[in-house]
Nucleic acid binder design. Sequence first.
DNA 1: AGATTAAATGATATGTTATAACGTTTCCTA
DNA 2: TAGGAAACGTTATAACATATCATTTAATCT
Lengths: 153, 153
Amino acid sequence: MDSVSQIVDHAEQHCASRGTRLTNKRKHVLRSLLRSGKALSAYELIDECKIRFENTLPATSMYRILDFLSKERLVHRLSMANKYVACSHITCDHECEASQFLICIHCQKVKEVRISQSTVTDLQATIGHAGFHLATTQFEINCICDGCALTTT
Amino acid sequence: MDSVSQIVDHAEQHCASRGTRLTNKRKHVLRSLLRSGKALSAYELIDECKIRFENTLPATSMYRILDFLSKERLVHRLSMANKYVACSHITCDHECEASQFLICIHCQKVKEVRISQSTVTDLQATIGHAGFHLATTQFEINCICDGCALTTT
DNA sequence: AGATTAAATGATATGTTATAACGTTTCCTA
DNA sequence: TAGGAAACGTTATAACATATCATTTAATCT
């Protein structure tokens, strides 16, 4: 299990190799997401950065930073929840083209999984018949996590 | 192909049989959604009702009406797009438990499809292994429709 | 080092989506 | 037709997001 610092270091190298910079403010946002282990809204992240790093970011900057981190594929936007989550593949060669996000509708916990290619192929067939095709394979799926399933029943 | 009026009539009977009422304002919203054939935001629906029916609804009422129509399963909320769409199964015995929504990220066109049970089963297995289970089988999938695929390439 | 330029960030305002709290109207039914 | 519930309106505000323009910071070149 990588520590947050190790992941951030890795992310910094990832950016450097792409000619971009993981600035301190960007690191603060990424660290906040990594430490929380769940999806956070832009405004929750503003609060986190203020508390943890005494870094009061305006909303504009936060959205810019989240946009940057998304483009670097270090963070994913979950549009179902209007929240943001750290990519779980930052260190492991960073292949996240075909990730799916399971989002607990109770506690917001997020798990990034990969469904089988055959399932994707099945889906694509259904979608193709309907006159559409996939824009991305980064699905978001509303779920209930085992923890919440126990406590809410 | 049912006309909008026929579908609204059917919806009215559906409500009556459940002891609820499809009021004029609720009909206006449903008609607007049916006629547009795509997903609309609450505020776009306010504009539609104002233009088509000279019925100026406040936001509070619109959200209440959308909530009512959702509970009656006449309308679905698309949380990825923050928009609302008429159920495509209002007339045909109205079974929409296992519907999936293909949303064109360019033109907002929405198609309600049903993926195969085997695909659902595959998905459930993957999700179960990750310590989650499905909250609903009403997935939302970001797509590009064939029309937009032609014009944007 | 100092000038130049591009990237990053800040400030301000506003747009968009959604809900809370409370008051009024409408409509069904006893 | 009185009473109560459902529907709807008013007002205010919360939560999420972006547009525009100004300023600061950092890399680069001489």
